[in-house]
């Protein structure tokens, strides 16, 4: 059942990507999610990655796609992690990992690239309640083609080095949810 469901979702995502206009420029979307505590607000971030065929070819060749994602506000320190999309040539599946100096977290396996990308491009950030300025920054990192021992500058393939978004958290939190 899960496989059928993933397959149908992947099928629709493929058509949606195929029909939608090719976005050259990536962008970040931000949305309020919930309060973790009265002092901490959770926001959902979505990266419109501007996916293209060259990126897909490189990922399918086993060259990981890695971004450094960081965010900070006027009431908190910088928090960052590296999110890496991998293709497992043995199992023929996609997965991504989040890592920083404290921990590594691995996602589940995805059979289709579109399914993996859907989750790959979404994450959550925590911002202190009352912060008036916050910035989210996504920077593409160079990747290594292990079998050829070659480092690839992925920004040339992606078309840009970084994308960022600055926002005022109080304007994103819906009025009735303000505490």
């Amino acid at each position: 059942m899960n496989g059928v469901r993933d397959g149908l979702v992947g099928f629709f995502l493929f058509f949606a990507h195929w029909l939608s206009p090719q976005t050259e420029k990536a962008s970040i979307g931000i949305d309020f999610h919930d309060y973790r505590t009265p002092e901490v607000v959770i926001f959902k971030c979505k990266l419109d990655i501007g996916w293209n065929k060259q990126l897909e070819q490189l990922v399918d060749a086993g060259i990981p796609l890695q971004y450094r994602i960081l965010h900070f506000s006027n009431k908190s320190d910088t928090v960052y992690f590296f999110r890496t999309l991998n293709f497992d040539m043995v199992r023929y599946t996609y997965n991504f990992t989040d890592s920083n100096e404290r921990a590594i977290r691995r996602s589940k396996d995805y059979s289709l690239i579109n399914l993996a990308l859907r989750d790959y491009c979404r994450w959550e950030i925590e911002v202190p309640n009352g912060a008036s300025a916050c910035k989210v920054d996504v920077t593409i990192m160079p990747s290594k083609a292990e079998r050829l021992n070659k480092v690839v500058d992925m920004s040339r393939v992606w078309g840009q080095q970084r994308v960022s978004l600055g926002f005022d958290p109080s304007t994103v939190i819906p009025a009735q949810r303000n505490r």
Binding site: Q57, L58, D60, A61, G62, I63, M89, A145, E146, R147, L148, K150, V152
Partner: peptide
């Protein structure tokens, strides 16, 4: 296979 793919991609 991975090596071959990486070669073609790069």
């Amino acid at each position: 296979i991975e090596r071959n793919r990486q070669w073609q991609a790069l």
